[in-house]
Computed example of a mutant assay.
Amino acid sequence: MAAFVGLCQVTLTVPGSTSLKDKRRVLRSIVDRLRQRYALAVAEVGSQDAWQRADIAFACVSAEPSRCEAILAECVRWLETRSDIELVHVETEIL
């Protein structure tokens, strides 16, 4: 049986952030929610020292590539509903 890995990397801004502490608070909320609700592996992968910018990546595993695509798309839609961030770039890949 084959396994597929869905990867998504997003670049986002946190316009209301005035410090790294503000940004980390927002990111912690996002990371915790993605992990709990969607059972994903999630990490901040770039822009760690920027106050208003963040790069996060998340991944899922499934026996069907369409399931990976659906999970990642649902996560991106959820991110788009958040009023405290703005998505700048989204890149997905199924391996």
Score class of each variant (00 low, 15 high):
7 L>T: 09
36 Q>E: 15
59 A>F: 09
94 I>D: 09
43 A>Y: 01
76 V>W: 00
91 E>N: 15
13 T>L: 12
37 R>H: 12
6 G>V: 03
2 A>I: 14
2 A>Y: 12
51 W>F: 07
89 H>S: 08
25 R>F: 13
50 A>M: 14
4 F>Y: 15
69 E>N: 13
44 E>L: 00
64 E>D: 13
27 L>A: 09
5 V>Y: 15
84 D>W: 08
45 V>D: 04
26 V>H: 13
2 A>C: 12
79 L>Y: 01
40 L>S: 10
52 Q>H: 12
42 V>H: 06
88 V>M: 06
5 V>E: 15
16 G>C: 10
58 F>R: 01
24 R>N: 12
21 K>S: 13
68 C>W: 04
68 C>A: 03
78 W>C: 10
37 R>C: 02
36 Q>T: 08
60 C>P: 05
79 L>I: 02
1 M>I: 11
65 P>T: 01
84 D>F: 11
36 Q>W: 07
54 A>Q: 06
25 R>K: 14
30 I>R: 15
87 L>E: 12
92 T>C: 15
71 I>M: 06
67 R>P: 01
4 F>R: 09
75 C>S: 05
58 F>Q: 15
48 Q>G: 10
54 A>P: 06
94 I>Q: 10
27 L>K: 08
63 A>G: 06
1 M>D: 15
57 A>L: 08
78 W>I: 09
28 R>H: 02
28 R>F: 00
18 T>K: 10
84 D>K: 10
45 V>L: 08
72 L>C: 03
19 S>M: 00
72 L>I: 05
70 A>C: 01
4 F>A: 10
39 A>V: 05
93 E>R: 12
35 R>Q: 04
32 D>M: 13
5 V>M: 07
25 R>G: 09
7 L>R: 10
53 R>Q: 13
26 V>F: 02
59 A>K: 11
3 A>R: 15
71 I>D: 11
18 T>W: 12
79 L>V: 04
19 S>T: 01
21 K>H: 14
44 E>P: 10
38 Y>I: 05
67 R>T: 02
63 A>C: 07
40 L>E: 01
23 K>T: 07
5 V>S: 12
24 R>E: 05
74 E>Q: 04
8 C>Y: 02
79 L>N: 10
49 D>E: 03
14 V>G: 08
55 D>Q: 10
76 V>S: 02
39 A>H: 13
26 V>Y: 07
5 V>W: 13
11 T>E: 15
55 D>K: 04
36 Q>L: 14
86 E>C: 08
59 A>D: 11
5 V>I: 14
42 V>I: 04
88 V>F: 00
7 L>G: 03
62 S>V: 14
71 I>C: 02
52 Q>T: 06
82 R>K: 04
72 L>M: 01
70 A>M: 11
17 S>W: 08
87 L>H: 08
41 A>R: 07
48 Q>M: 02
29 S>K: 14
20 L>Y: 04
69 E>L: 11
75 C>R: 04
1 M>P: 12
54 A>L: 03
13 T>C: 10
78 W>G: 12
5 V>H: 15
93 E>K: 08
77 R>D: 12
86 E>F: 03
55 D>C: 11
31 V>G: 09
